[in-house]
Design a binder for these strands. Structure first.
Lengths: 209, 209
DNA sequence: TAGATTGTTAATCGATTAACAATC
DNA sequence: TAGATTGTTAATCGATTAACAATC
């Protein structure tokens, strides 16, 4: 029976990395069942099967899913099999953390250069990478055909940086600034807002506060 | 007409911080309409009204909502009106970034101490705060009645840290490690997984990759 | 007053969960 | 074979969107 990858729902896509993380820890194991994955990740096994279906990998009744094939299929589905090269704008607290996080390699992401506007930061070396002035971003992005950008600058500066990036040919933006960016329609943006997660925790915790 | 705060859906709660951010920028303005907020945040105005309804603040037809009252109500709803004191475990890349982020004050969060197990990190001062050995967390948490913990350690260490925290009386955990934590049922956990956001971006970007 | 905007009730949409046949 | 597990179809649940009366 041929594998047929499908389009996944957004919540499903969000869960794929946690499957990948678990599967990679199962080094050496041949097969894994949806019930096992579900118990480890505290999910419903039906949901796990639905999610895994988007990879196109078929499981065998009573046996489970082939671990290796699942890993490769999820990586391929996410495009994490060959790393995307990205530019990082903003080398402050958060930017430095992103720059220093070596786990991105496992997520198909390679930050190849960092930029900032602050003269105190420009020229510094963070985690082996020199921080360049933001003015150099457009030229380098064009020359190196970089298509992904990460925005870790302050809210007021974010739109300007997004404009620089899109004009330089960047077509995907991972945005950590708490603002809604205005971009050309062929550019995709993913907003990452720590505050929204903390809001959920705050409300959950409000019971006993 | 009396205000009546309601329970909000999870997606609504996640959007509240972005409303708060926008409202705070509207310093001096008396009233704001749901259509204005919606256009700025690229949301549906009906959705904005539904979300704002959970604060209990009533708007006036043709006028809009009182800005100041909205800010205070959202802060109160999230419990951000008086800062929660939290302990941070893990002072590596991400932990340092969290420790250095001064914006948490506006989110009702105050990280009052940081802990790590790595002897190279323990004793260091990061952003004016000394990093203590993780073994000291339980005693200090109990003594200071700290009820919130932030986990920024590696995946393999996360469960052990969660155990330390819950045994010391911490009742809310903001978890940045990519694992599902096992905690007593009166403890609330909010998982924050950067990888899931990046997965969404990757799939969106896959169109042109 | 006329028109813009709120707030509520109803309809739609999408994701999760349930049921169950297929199968190893 | 019997039983565990997959994968699909149907039912449920919840959030978003639409419709519209109320009102300033």
């Amino acid at each position: 029976m041929p594998n047929r990858p499908r389009v996944g729902s957004l919540p499903s896509v969000r869960r794929l990395p946690s499957y990948l993380h678990l599967l990679r820890e199962l080094d050496g194991v041949e097969s894994v069942s949806s019930t096992y994955i579900a118990s480890k990740l505290r999910l419903d096994s039906i949901q796990v099967r639905k999610d895994l279906a988007i990879t196109g990998v078929l499981g065998k009744p009573k046996v489970g899913y082939p671990v290796k094939a699942l890993i490769l299929s999820i990586e391929a589905y996410l495009g994490w099999d060959n790393a995307a090269e990205a530019f990082l704008a903003g080398a402050g607290n958060l930017g430095s953390a992103l720059l220093g996080y070596d786990g991105f390699a496992r997520h198909g992401l390679s930050i190849i250069a960092a930029f900032d506007a602050n003269p105190d930061i420009v020229g510094r070396t963070i985690n082996g990478k020199q921080v360049l002035h933001i003015d150099r971003l457009p030229g380098l992005a064009k020359r190196m055909h970089v298509r992904m950008g990460i925005i870790a600058v302050t809210a007021p500066a974010a739109q300007r940086v997004a404009d620089l990036m899109t004009q330089a040919g960047i077509r995907a933006i991972w945005n950590f600034a708490p603002v809604s960016l205005s971009v050309p329609e062929d550019v995709v943006v993913q907003d990452e807002d720590l505050a929204s997660g903390f809001a959920v925790l705050s409300v959950k915790a409000a019971k006993w506060r």
